[in-house]
Simulated assay, not measured.
Amino acid sequence: MDDRMSHPNRERADRILDAAGELLLRMGYRKVAVDDIARAVGIGKGTVYLHWRNKELLFQALMMRESADLTDEVLQAIKADPAMILPHRMIPGSFLITHRRPLVMAMLRGNAEMFGSLGDLALHKQQDELRAQFEETMLRHGLIRADVPNLSYALSASTLGFYLGDTLSHEFEGVPLEEKAAVLAHVIRTAFEPAGEPDPGAVAEVAAELGSALEELVAGYRNGIYAHDPTRSPG
């Protein structure tokens, strides 16, 4: 069943979030008022408050929806091909998916003017927990090298450079996105994965384990998006 059909006013809530996202990109968090969002949707301000008690909770729900959609896209890619779970495929795959989502890119790049204090509320805890589980599972199944000092820092620094590079220098702005993803895949494969072909059994086990974790994460996000207070929803 379509999730929207099982929740009254879900379609209206999505229209509110769509408008909030467009205004956020155009004006920034501090300048967007609930009045602006209501006007864009063609409803009264009071109707917006029926869904979320204040502007901050509304925008939390917006970023929760963005994170749920992005995570679900990664999950579907893994279900279609379990080898997508390998670091040199999953990390560049997520890189490409993220670049198709301007709000997530702006959040990831720490755009303080756009997000104000909202960046501090952007689901970092769940994402950090998932990242730690990803690394632990990869190590346990021998799909990532165990001799890399401070693996979490090394992986994070190596990956973030590809997201943030254009904000620090204009030198490589002309490099096509797909080429950047291919370079990222090469770096991850050569620096962090053991030589040789990965064991198919290990790949299948990791895909199943991390796929379940991603499903739980998406379910938790979906439970919270349309709650009056997303931070207190179940899941």
Rank of each mutant, 00 (worst) to 15 (best):
M107I: 07
Y221R: 14
A122M: 09
H170F: 05
P200E: 09
L130A: 12
P102R: 04
A191F: 00
S169D: 04
A132Q: 13
E209P: 05
L118K: 14
R101S: 07
E209G: 01
H228T: 07
Y221I: 10
M138I: 04
Y226A: 15
G119T: 12
E209I: 12
E193D: 08
H99S: 02
L177V: 07
A219Q: 10
I225W: 00
H228E: 06
H124S: 11
V206W: 05
F162K: 07
T137Q: 06
M90D: 01
V183E: 07
A191V: 02
I188F: 05
S152V: 02
E215A: 14
S152T: 06
F134L: 05
L177F: 04
A106Q: 15
R109M: 11
A83H: 01
G174H: 09
L177I: 11
A213S: 12
A191Y: 00
R131A: 13
G196E: 02
L96N: 07
R222D: 15
S152K: 04
A204V: 03
G110Q: 13
A227G: 14
L155E: 06
G224Y: 05
E215M: 13
Q127P: 02
R131G: 11
A132P: 04
L121F: 11
G196S: 02
G110C: 08
Y153A: 10
I97W: 05
A204C: 05
N111G: 02
L130M: 14
A204D: 09
D147S: 14
A83Q: 05
F192Y: 12
R101Q: 13
N111Y: 03
V175T: 04
V104M: 12
E215I: 11
V183A: 10
A157R: 15
E178Q: 15
R189H: 13
I144W: 01
R109P: 06
R101I: 08
E113Q: 14
A112L: 10
V206C: 13
A195V: 11
V104S: 09
G220F: 00
D120A: 12
A213V: 11
A219L: 13
G196F: 00
S94L: 12
A227I: 11
H99C: 06
Q126R: 14
G116D: 08
E113S: 14
A185C: 00
G220M: 05
R100S: 14
Y153R: 08
E197F: 03
D81A: 10
P82R: 07
L151A: 01
H228S: 11
S156E: 11
R189M: 09
L96H: 07
R145K: 05
A122K: 03
V175G: 01
V148N: 01
R100F: 05
A213E: 13
I144E: 03
E136D: 04
I188A: 09
S156L: 09
V175E: 00
E171W: 04
S94R: 10
I188S: 08
D81Y: 01
S117C: 03
M105D: 00
E193N: 05
S158T: 15
Q126L: 15
T159M: 09
E216Y: 13
K125P: 10
E179Y: 06
G142C: 06
R100N: 12
V187W: 02
F162H: 08
L210V: 08
V187R: 10
E197C: 06
R89F: 00
L151R: 00
A191D: 00
R145Y: 01
F192K: 12
R145W: 02
I85S: 03
